[in-house]
Structure formats: structure tokens, C-alpha cells
Amino acid sequence: MTLEAFFFYAFTTLALGGATLAITRRSAVHAAISLMVSLLGVAGLYLLLNAEFLFVSQIILYIGGILLLFLFVIMLVNLDAGRGLRQFHQRWPLGAAVTAIAGVAFAILWSRAKLPPSQTMPDVGNVELVADTLLQDYLVPFEVVSLLLLVAVVGSVLLARKRA
């Protein structure tokens, strides 16, 4: 097994194992930490594809920002009070059916599709490539998305203010 394959399987295990733990753990803090492990695995996969800018953005934004905020809120409101509760919704059959259909569809797609070998990025500097793509080729969609985010931020501030 080459070094690259070893790291690929290691990161995949992290990503999938973390994701599984994130939805099966009862304690909210444990689930959040498992999610962090999963995101770390995905970041590692980015790095294997030579997409180092994506790797670092994933760590800074998701792990160092969003997930930390999750953890902050979980700790603040002490969600562990609901730890001993049993799940009370009764949609298991529906959920299982949807999962089975999606799984079958995915399996069919995967067996039919001819997946090209994963492309590694050219070695010219990842940041420049991302910047050129975002700010030249796709400038308008990029600005529209940022406007959307701004609306969301202003809206959340407004909502929080009315209650006070």
C-alpha cells in the first residue's frame, strides 16, 4: 500500500467514523466532537488532492469557527439534560425506506458511471487559482452569494433584537 493510499483510508475512516458517531452519540458534546473529527477527515482528503487552500479554509471556518460556536451553545444551554430521554418520534419505517431507495439509486449510479481518476491540482498556487475562479470567472454569482449571507446576518440580528 502506498503512503497516499494509507492516508486516503485513514482520512476516510476519520470522516465516516466521525459522521457515524455524530449521529449516534446521545451526549451533544460528544456528537459535536465527533463531527469535528469527521470534518478533519474531510480536510485531510482535500489535502491529499493538493487543494491546500480548501484544507485550511475547512479547518479555519468549520472547525475553528462554526463547530466551536456549536460547542459554545451546547455548553451554554447544557443540552445534556435531554441525555436520558428516549427518542419519541415514530418515523422509523419512512426513514428506512428513504435511506434504502437512496442507497439503491446511489449504487446504480456508481456502478454505471465511469468515474475519472481524481484530479490533482496543478502546482501553481492554490490560493491564486481559487481567487481567479471566484473573483474573475464567477464574480457575479460570488457577489450574489455574499449579499445573501449579508441578508441572513442582518435578518438574524433583527430577529434577536425584537425579542429583547
Binding site: 491546500e52 487552500f53 485550511v56 479554509s57 479547518i59 479555519i60 472547525i63 475553528g64 469557527g65 466551536l68 492554490n126 490560493v127
Partner: peptide, 11 residues
């Protein structure tokens, strides 16, 4: 990406 990596690790 040295600088970004430092930001990520300290985060």
C-alpha cells in the same frame, strides 16, 4: 499557506 495554517492551528 503557512500563515493560514498557523491561524487554523491556533483556532
Amino acid at each position: 499557506i503557512g500563515l493560514l495554517l498557523i491561524l487554523g492551528l491556533t483556532g
